[in-house]
Amino acid sequence: MTAILTEGLTKNFGELCAVNGLDLSIDKEIFGLLGPNGSGKTTSVLMLTTLLTQTKGSASICGHDTRLEPEKVRDCISYVPQDMAVDTNLTGRENMLIFAWLYGIPNPKDKVDELLAVMELSDRADDLAKTYSGGMRRRLELAEALVHEPEVIFLDEPTIGLDVAARRNIWTHIKKMTKKGMTIFMTTHYMDEADQYCDRVGIISRGKIAALGSPSVLKAHLMKDVITVTIEGDYSPVQLDGTVFVGQSDDAISFTVENGREALPLLADVLKQAGNRVKAMSLREPSLDDVFLQSVGKQEEPKGFEEFKFHMMLHHRGH
């Protein structure tokens, strides 16, 4: 049975279409949903975790429809939002026990001890959570999420705001969970992490999936090399046989080419002729960033995010 299955999953907030016809089939893997702010990542997660009802389409988790059998869905999932919601005036153990009791699992004390050990929190278990570092709080949340041995875990930006070491540590733990047959559905902004750790990624832009597949396959769709050009002032577009424009972010413009070494001087000439002031050029292998840039296009302005939040707010007020 597929862990997560969606068919034409759609959510409208009034005029705004936050998620538009999502078709996904995810099972026993780490799936990363990538996209700019306001692209529909969180809305998708909220629908899959039964916190929001879709406008159209359907979703099922472990064979249970999210709308028809929400209780059964909640039985087999865990959801860790990005807010780091840990009771700071409670100890790590107390935080965990509350979740164990809420899920009604047998032998809550033993289970809590076991998971605190798994997450390397045993020696700090009886300290108040407010003395924990960001990485420890995140691990505590992961431990809470594992208490009832869910089949699917939803993680919203699991490594946001953490330092490099803590991020790597969190990923090690997430990897371990999939080894036990769990399905991980996560959203992230960090392309390098998605590239390194996700089995498959979906890039979502304006509510629609723009690219779907394993990072290596997606990268292979681009040509062999990527040339990034830093320019001063506005970019006037150029055409050169054998090079494909990928996208622009700030003053960096990317192209893919089959043979970078040969194309580099040619591209420099063409750019100069078109009146561009080239500051620097670099040649490298494609990364998930390039795939992202190509699928999403120019990064959306923060304005789109505010508008989206505003709509969410209106929705929550019941208008």
């Binding site: 975790t49 916190l51 909640r74 039985d75 999932i77 919601a85 809420l102």
Partner: peptide, 8 residues
């Protein structure tokens, strides 16, 4: 949101 996503 965490509590609402639980079977309680």
């Amino acid at each position: 949101n965490k509590f609402l996503a639980m079977p309680v």
